[in-house]
Amino acid sequence: MTSAFRRLLDPVIDNNPVTLQILGICSALAVTTSLATALTMSVALTAVLVASSTVISLIRRHIPNAIRLIVQITIIASLVIVADQILQAFAWQMSQRLSIFVGLIVTNCLVLGRAEGFAMRNGVGASALDALGNGLGYSFILLIVGAIREVFGTGALFGHPVLPTLAKGGWFTPLNLMMLAPSAFFILGLLIWFIRTIKVEQVEHEGTAIISADEARKP
């Protein structure tokens, strides 16, 4: 694997922002009641992440250290507003369903984390790839959780019935728990357990629950 390719794929499983770094949990709970909202949120977050990392990497040599966080957050917030406005203009129904959560991308630690942790000290190409990879990693988890919740909560996928529900004369009883936020916690927990059973190196060592900043930055 070339390094660029690895940079893109590494955050999807091996260094996933949601299941390994446990970032972006809030939106992962809120927007995963259906696959369509999870997909829209994923696209919005990935777009914002790639754009912000690219821009910040582009001007990284001219950002004074004293105001770097403010500059980063200003750029991210502007891009989030733009993404929200575009959704409101061209996907009105979807933006109503996502309500405030597109706007809350600005508080998603994932975006600021990539800007501060990677884009500030790497070139434009590498930063864009890293951002895209992390966006895909986030999207991957969101889509899994969204698909599980929609199938077991409503018996449908993307609104198309896949399991015949009792209400429509079938055999499947929708699990109402799946429509509530706690179910996303359970699914995420099981997912993390599953991934760490296969990839044992992701298990945190006893006593070092928090990875030091230098260790986290290692590619």
């Binding site: 001219h62 004074p64 105001i67 917030a77 507003i81 733009v82």
Partner: peptide, 23 residues
């Protein structure tokens, strides 16, 4: 130099200006 006061103010102003125009 990045840490000079003039550059800090200039960068803050430019970023604010560009972001405001974009939004």
């Amino acid at each position: 130099p990045n840490e000079s006061r003039a550059k800090t103010v200039a960068v803050a102003f430019m970023v604010a200006l560009v972001c405001a125009a974009l939004v």
